[in-house]
Amino acid sequence: MNLQIGQWRIDILSGGEFLHDGGVLYGVVPKSIWEKTQPVDEQNRVHLAMQCVLARNGTHTILVDTGHGDKLSPLDRKSHGLMPGWALREELIRVGTQLEDIDTVILSHLHWDHSGGATSKFPSGIGPTFPNATYYVNRQEWADAVSGDITVSGGYVEDDFLPLEASGKLSLVDHLQEIVPGVQVLQTGGHTRGHQAVLIRSANQGLLFPGDIAATSAHIRRMWCTSYDLDLARTRQVKAELFGYAADHSYWVVWNHDKDCPVSKVERHPKREFMVVNNTR
């Protein structure tokens, strides 16, 4: 699936698929309500995607998030209900991109399903998957991930990100920092304290990658948040800010864990705040 955002060709690529507990994904929302939007298996798990964004403009080749990667043990793969292999490698080949072509990797946050593919196993040890890329991580996210403080560091796997620092490929960024012209990160907080969204703009067009602020298109609802969110109030607040901006500018929104609706536009709604429109499904 691809879009054209001004000078940017945007490809929505699979970083893998997995099964996840529905109660965790939808938090305080009763199952009798959320199950109408997404069926579950016999273990109460829902089938989710790990959408990544490849953006190319002839000068830069940018990857937003990396999926689960290829380092997980067979036991971990079974636990997460992962599909075989690591789809992102094949997806990149399909759209004519080699690992070496990517010069910029932006990670929304450092949980395993977003940053696992940032590093890979090599004969010499674990190192950056994309050898010519600089990896951009929010400064607060990095501090929390390496802190050892269990109140903020849960969900991180050190092999996914510590080798980036050791290789000299890591760049820490702050709220509203421009990575390359037309590509900006926005520290949202909410899901993790250093979680960041990504905004790509060109020629009065744009695409918003909100990451786990809204895991699926169903999470466009203000109260629909995951149980993993560290700051539920902040997640709910920032949804209104992000979706309001996307709606007012008619920007595309990527739903990074939505298998059936990877990208859409949104509009304001008088009764439901926002609604999904122009679904590319």
Rank of each mutant, 00 (worst) to 15 (best):
T61E: 04
T61S: 14
T61C: 14
T61L: 09
T61A: 06
I62Y: 00
I62R: 04
I62L: 10
L63H: 10
L63Y: 05
L63P: 03
V64T: 09
V64I: 13
V64R: 00
V64C: 06
V64Q: 07
V64E: 00
D65R: 02
D65M: 03
D65Q: 12
D65I: 10
T66Q: 09
T66Y: 06
T66W: 09
T66L: 04
T66A: 10
T66K: 03
G67D: 08
G67M: 04
G67V: 01
H68M: 14
H68S: 11
H68R: 11
H68K: 08
H68G: 07
G69R: 02
G69H: 04
G69M: 04
G69D: 01
D70F: 02
K71V: 05
K71H: 10
K71G: 07
K71T: 06
L72F: 09
S73W: 01
S73I: 03
P74M: 02
P74S: 00
P74R: 04
L75I: 15
L75Y: 10
L75H: 15
L75R: 11
L75F: 14
D76T: 14
R77Q: 08
R77I: 09
R77D: 02
K78D: 12
K78E: 14
S79T: 04
S79I: 01
H80Q: 13
H80V: 07
G81I: 08
G81W: 06
G81M: 02
L82D: 00
L82T: 00
M83V: 15
M83E: 12
P84N: 06
P84T: 01
P84F: 06
G85R: 10
G85D: 11
G85M: 12
G85N: 13
G85P: 02
G85K: 11
W86D: 12
W86G: 10
W86I: 00
W86F: 12
A87M: 13
A87R: 04
A87T: 13
A87L: 14
A87F: 04
L88K: 03
L88W: 00
R89P: 05
R89G: 10
R89V: 13
R89Y: 10
R89E: 15
E90W: 07
E90M: 13
E90R: 10
E90V: 05
E90H: 10
E91M: 04
E91V: 01
E91A: 12
E91W: 09
E91N: 05
E91K: 01
L92R: 00
L92W: 01
L92A: 01
L92H: 03
L92V: 04
L92Y: 05
I93G: 09
I93K: 15
R94A: 13
R94H: 08
R94K: 14
R94Q: 07
V95Q: 09
V95G: 04
V95M: 09
V95T: 05
V95S: 12
V95K: 07
G96D: 03
G96I: 08
G96V: 07
T97Y: 13
T97C: 13
T97I: 09
T97D: 05
T97V: 13
Q98K: 15
Q98C: 12
Q98S: 15
Q98W: 11
Q98H: 14
Q98F: 14
L99V: 05
L99N: 05
L99W: 04
E100S: 14
E100W: 08
E100Y: 06
E100H: 13
E100F: 08
E100A: 11
E100D: 07
E100I: 14
